Simulated scan of single mutants.
Amino acid sequence: MLSVQVKNARGEVLRKIAADPGFEPVLLGVDAAVHPHLAVLDPYGDTVFNYLQVKRLLLELDTYGPASGAPEAFLEELRQLCRLVLDGTHRFLWFIGS
C-alpha cells in the first residue's frame, strides 16, 4: 500500500497520509493517455512529483475520482497534500510504495 508525503528540499516530512487500499491506479490499469501522472505511480517503489507535475496531477484527480472507486475522502486528502506542495517553495509530493 502506498503512503503519500509532502517533503521539503531538505527531506523533512511536512505532512503524510496512508493511501486508501482502493487507490491503486497502476495495478487497476489506469489509462495513461488520460491520466499520465497517475499512470506512473510505482506501487512498489517511490515516485516524486515537483510543483509543475503536482499542478497537472490535481487536474487528473478531478476526472479519475468518479470512475476509480477510490473513496472521495481519500482523494480530497490527496488534493490537500497537492495544495500544500503548491503553497510553498521547494516542496515535493512523494508516493512511497511498499
Rank of each mutant, 00 (worst) to 15 (best):
A32G: 06
Y51H: 12
T47C: 12
L57N: 04
I96R: 15
D31P: 01
A39D: 01
D20I: 06
A9W: 06
G69N: 08
F49D: 08
V13W: 08
A70R: 01
F95Q: 01
L59A: 15
A19P: 04
P36L: 08
S3G: 11
T89M: 06
A19D: 06
G97C: 04
A9H: 04
P43T: 00
D42P: 10
Q53I: 08
L86G: 08
K16H: 05
A39T: 02
Q5A: 09
Q53V: 06
P71L: 05
S98G: 13
Q53S: 13
V13S: 10
K16E: 14
Q80G: 07
N50F: 09
V85T: 06
E76C: 05
F49V: 11
L86P: 02
T47E: 09
T47Q: 02
P25E: 04
F49K: 06
H37P: 02
L58Y: 03
T47S: 15
L2T: 09
L57K: 03
D20R: 02
R91S: 07
Q53Y: 08
L14D: 04
E76L: 07
R56K: 15
V13P: 05
G65N: 00
F74Q: 10
V30R: 00
A67E: 13
L81M: 12
T89S: 13
E76T: 15
Q53C: 03
L38M: 02
H90Q: 14
L28K: 15
G97A: 11
F49A: 03
E24Q: 15
P66M: 03
C82D: 05
A67I: 07
V6G: 07
L93T: 02
E72T: 12
G69H: 02
E12I: 12
Q5I: 10
G45C: 09
R56G: 10
V48S: 06
A19I: 04
L84Q: 10
A33D: 13
A9D: 05
L52A: 11
E60L: 07
V40F: 00
L86E: 03
V4E: 04
G11R: 08
L61T: 14
G97L: 02
L75G: 01
V48E: 15
R56L: 13
A33P: 00
G22M: 05
